[in-house]
Amino acid sequence: MPQPPFDPRRRRLLQALGALPAIAPALARSDPLETARTHLYRWPTPANGDALVGRTHVSIVRDGETLHHVARRFDLGYWDILLANPDKDFWLPGDGTPVIVPRRFILPDTPRQGIVINAPELRLYYYGEDGRHVDSHPIGIGRQDWGTPLGTARVTEKIPQPAWYPPASIRAEAAARGERLPREVPPGPDNPLGAYALILDLPGYLIHGTNRPAGVGMRVSHGCVRLYPEDIAALFPQVPRGAPVHLVHQPVKTAWSQGRLWVEAHPLPTDQDYTAKDLRFSERERNAHATRISNEALERGHLVDRNRVAAVLERPTGVPTPVTGYD
């Protein structure tokens, strides 16, 4: 297949990502005590049909951080932080710069059990077995030519310190780039599966860690779902064998909370999307989503604020926004 012209924005992004190993110590800043991190990703499961969890707040860039550092500090991914801060320089936001931290989420419209993966949102949810809490983590998923499948699956096996056996298709892709992949990559820093892997009953698909955390929140994998090393370490011991996995496509989520209808929008990125200005719904998609949102409000006797609905769909931020009632 002929390759499209190389986009200069992609070149700059890849060059910057290539420089990340030099700043790896800073990227790895995470509290070794997992109990000190649970407030970043765990909330009580809402009751009475509510589906809104967490809160959005503002943090300050410090110590030469990039937006990637800020995102990882708050357990967010690439598109999470980028959509919420479209006018900030991703690599040089500047010390002292206020940054929106989008940690409020509408839970996907799925059974509240096991693992839920919402592909457009690039986010995983896990409902604890006791039903009392829900955890949420950013993920990396398959790029367009290696898409992550949708549907229902189950966790069939849990493997700590997994070895990686690159399939023939991936070895062929590497060979086309002039690289040679071994048939087995043992556990360790060069293993792209990281330290833990959850095997699904979808042949060849896993939920795992990564040795390249900069790709979390992007479409960069060969179809598997990758998490930050600290997130897979927290998730792995909780998930039992046999746990259900719901893989869904819900780019626009809605929820009734506090007597108002809230909307959260996440267009699915493509391989050619790099900035917040790139990531948009088509006019046809916007019209369809706007109609659905308006009808949902009407069913409860409410009228939406059409300007707010238009703003949410035309410039998605990934932040839940009320579209009925008044502030």
Score class of each variant (00 low, 15 high):
residue 110 T to W: 09
residue 311 A to P: 02
residue 249 H to T: 05
residue 55 R to W: 02
residue 76 L to R: 09
residue 190 D to M: 06
residue 205 Y to W: 04
residue 231 D to E: 14
residue 213 P to N: 04
residue 182 P to Q: 09
residue 93 P to M: 02
residue 126 Y to P: 01
residue 256 W to Q: 04
residue 296 E to M: 13
residue 85 N to H: 12
residue 168 A to W: 02
residue 279 L to I: 01
residue 52 L to S: 07
residue 81 I to G: 01
residue 107 L to M: 06
residue 221 S to P: 05
residue 146 W to H: 08
residue 255 A to L: 11
residue 217 G to Q: 07
residue 93 P to K: 03
residue 302 H to Y: 08
residue 153 A to W: 13
residue 149 P to T: 13
residue 287 N to Y: 11
residue 223 G to R: 00
residue 39 H to K: 02
residue 163 A to N: 01
residue 73 R to D: 05
residue 18 G to H: 09
residue 26 A to I: 07
residue 260 R to H: 12
residue 80 D to S: 08
residue 126 Y to D: 02
residue 310 A to V: 05
residue 122 L to F: 06
residue 83 L to K: 13
residue 294 S to T: 08
residue 26 A to G: 10
residue 237 P to Q: 10
residue 33 L to M: 14
residue 59 S to K: 01
residue 326 Y to D: 05
residue 179 E to M: 07
residue 106 I to G: 08
residue 84 A to T: 02
residue 192 P to V: 13
residue 22 A to S: 08
residue 283 E to W: 12
residue 46 P to M: 03
residue 17 L to F: 14
residue 34 E to Y: 05
residue 321 T to M: 11
residue 196 Y to K: 13
residue 280 R to E: 01
residue 192 P to I: 14
residue 224 C to K: 11
residue 232 I to E: 00
residue 324 T to G: 02
residue 140 G to V: 03
residue 17 L to N: 07
residue 327 D to M: 03
residue 161 Q to T: 08
residue 18 G to I: 08
residue 19 A to M: 04
residue 270 T to D: 06
residue 284 R to Q: 14
residue 124 L to I: 12
residue 277 K to N: 03
residue 179 E to F: 04
residue 143 R to T: 09
residue 262 W to G: 01
residue 117 I to Q: 05
residue 64 G to N: 04
residue 83 L to F: 12
residue 192 P to M: 14
residue 2 P to C: 00
residue 139 I to W: 14
residue 301 G to W: 11
residue 181 L to S: 12
residue 169 S to W: 10
residue 309 V to K: 09
residue 216 V to Q: 04
residue 241 R to L: 07
residue 106 I to K: 10
residue 312 V to N: 03
residue 251 P to K: 04
residue 284 R to M: 06
residue 202 L to W: 14
residue 178 G to A: 13
residue 63 D to I: 03
residue 167 P to T: 00
residue 85 N to P: 06
residue 159 I to S: 00
residue 32 P to T: 10
residue 84 A to E: 06
residue 154 R to G: 00
residue 159 I to P: 00
residue 201 D to P: 01
residue 215 G to P: 00
residue 240 P to V: 09
residue 58 V to M: 11
residue 301 G to M: 10
residue 275 T to D: 08
residue 218 M to Y: 05
residue 27 L to P: 05
residue 325 G to V: 11
residue 125 Y to M: 14
residue 234 A to C: 04
residue 149 P to C: 12
residue 189 P to H: 09
residue 123 R to D: 14
residue 183 R to N: 06
residue 158 K to R: 15
residue 144 Q to N: 08
residue 162 P to T: 05
residue 274 Y to I: 07
residue 69 H to V: 10
residue 116 V to F: 13
residue 96 G to K: 04
residue 71 A to W: 04
residue 309 V to G: 08
residue 221 S to N: 07
residue 188 G to I: 08
residue 256 W to L: 06
residue 222 H to P: 01
residue 292 R to C: 00
residue 46 P to C: 02
residue 157 E to R: 15
residue 129 E to K: 14
residue 233 A to R: 15
residue 93 P to S: 01
residue 301 G to L: 13
residue 65 E to N: 12
residue 248 V to E: 11
residue 280 R to D: 01
residue 64 G to V: 07
residue 13 L to V: 15
residue 53 V to F: 12
residue 90 F to P: 03
residue 2 P to G: 00
residue 273 D to Q: 10
